[in-house]
Amino acid sequence: MLALLALAASTLSACTPTPEPTPTPTAAFASEEEAFAAAEEVYRDYMEAFNLVDLRDPSTFDPLFQYSTGEYLSSEKESLSQLHAEGRLRGGAIKIVSFEGIDYTSSDSVEAITCNDVSETTFTDSEGSNLVPEDRPDRYALILNFIVVDSALVIESAAPTEDPACAS
């Protein structure tokens, strides 16, 4: 009887598939420095694409969208569509003055601060009237959050912040 039970058990276990090994998650970056460098590269590419946007031509928006995700991406699409619909025009370019990594606490999340110079950036309406407030600062700082989506680092959020070093 024991022999039959042993035979049955071994037969059943032979039919049971071996569980697939689950991959061990690996960090997206080998070091904090690598994560910060990757985030800076993504942001510089994003700003390059942003500076090429022509609000009259929505096809120029698409290259920008590969650098963001989630609510930030949705907000970006909505803003650009609205500016296009209103006939707004943007001139000049935003320049990155500085970029500094702040936090890298997990394998897929990076936080950084950037200082951007908008002194040469203009916005006008379809009649050519200036829409830039006279009291707009020439520089502004943003806290940026990046996450890994489908093995690519993208901007998840951006929020204005006070940074005395950026104000000068």
Rank of each mutant, 00 (worst) to 15 (best):
M1W: 05
A8P: 00
E20D: 11
P21C: 14
T22Y: 02
P23R: 09
T24Y: 04
T24N: 08
P25G: 12
A27R: 06
A30N: 11
E34R: 01
A35S: 06
A39K: 02
E40L: 04
E41S: 13
E41V: 02
Y43F: 15
R44D: 12
R44T: 15
Y46P: 10
E48S: 13
A49C: 07
F50S: 14
F50Y: 15
V53G: 11
V53A: 11
D54M: 00
D54E: 08
L55T: 04
R56H: 12
T60N: 07
D62K: 04
D62Q: 10
L64Q: 07
F65G: 09
Q66G: 09
Q66S: 14
S68I: 03
G70C: 06
E71Q: 08
E71P: 02
L73E: 13
K77D: 12
Q82P: 00
L83S: 13
H84R: 06
H84N: 14
L89R: 10
G91C: 08
G91Y: 03
K95W: 12
K95D: 12
I96G: 09
E100F: 00
G101L: 05
G101W: 05
D103K: 03
S106D: 13
S109N: 10
E111M: 06
I113F: 11
I113R: 14
I113Q: 10
D117F: 00
V118N: 13
T121M: 13
T122D: 11
F123S: 08
S126F: 05
S126Y: 06
S126C: 05
E127N: 03
G128A: 07
L131R: 01
D135H: 02
P137W: 07
D138T: 00
R139V: 05
R139P: 03
R139S: 09
A141M: 04
L142Q: 14
I143W: 12
I143R: 13
V148Y: 04
V149N: 12
V149C: 11
D150W: 00
S151Y: 12
L153M: 07
V154A: 11
E156T: 03
S157T: 09
E162V: 01
D163H: 01
C166W: 00
